[in-house]
Simulated scan of single mutants.
Amino acid sequence: MAKARLTIELCKGCRLCVGNCPKQAIIPLEQVNKKGYEIITVDEELCIGCGMCYKVCPDYVFTIE
């Protein structure tokens, strides 16, 4: 089954993906990437690979594999 993968270094913490995930599989973290932006993670157990995160992300953080 397809799953969302992300590149943490590209994330700018806009969290559009968090609000658009139908399974709440994208979780904001209290960590920052190298650029100082708050980051997110994907719960692979919950992810259904629908691609909503990929569609709404303005920074091309996600790939669906």
Rank of each mutant, 00 (worst) to 15 (best):
C47R: 05
K55P: 00
E44T: 11
T63K: 15
V42H: 05
V18H: 09
V56C: 05
P22K: 02
V42N: 10
Q24G: 12
V56R: 03
N33R: 02
P22H: 02
F62C: 01
I48G: 08
I27P: 06
D59T: 03
E44L: 15
K23H: 13
C14N: 08
Q24N: 15
G51Y: 14
C11T: 05
K35P: 01
E65V: 04
V32D: 04
Q24T: 05
P28A: 10
C17F: 09
K34M: 08
R15H: 15
V42D: 08
L46S: 13
E65K: 09
R5L: 14
A4D: 04
P22I: 03
C21E: 08
A4K: 03
C47H: 07
C14V: 03
V32A: 09
C17Q: 06
C11R: 02
P58W: 00
Y60W: 11
P58N: 07
G49N: 11
K3S: 05
P28W: 10
Y37K: 00
G13K: 02
P58F: 01
P22W: 00
R15V: 02
P58A: 08
C21I: 03
C17K: 08
K3F: 08
V32C: 01
G13E: 03
G19P: 05
K34W: 04
I39Y: 10
K55R: 15
C47F: 09
A25T: 10
K34R: 12
I64A: 05
I48S: 13
K3D: 04
G51P: 11
P28I: 11
A4W: 09
E38W: 02
E45A: 14
C14G: 08
K12T: 07
C53H: 07
E9Q: 08
N20A: 15
C14P: 07
N33E: 12
C21S: 04
G49H: 12
C53I: 04
I64E: 03
K23Y: 10
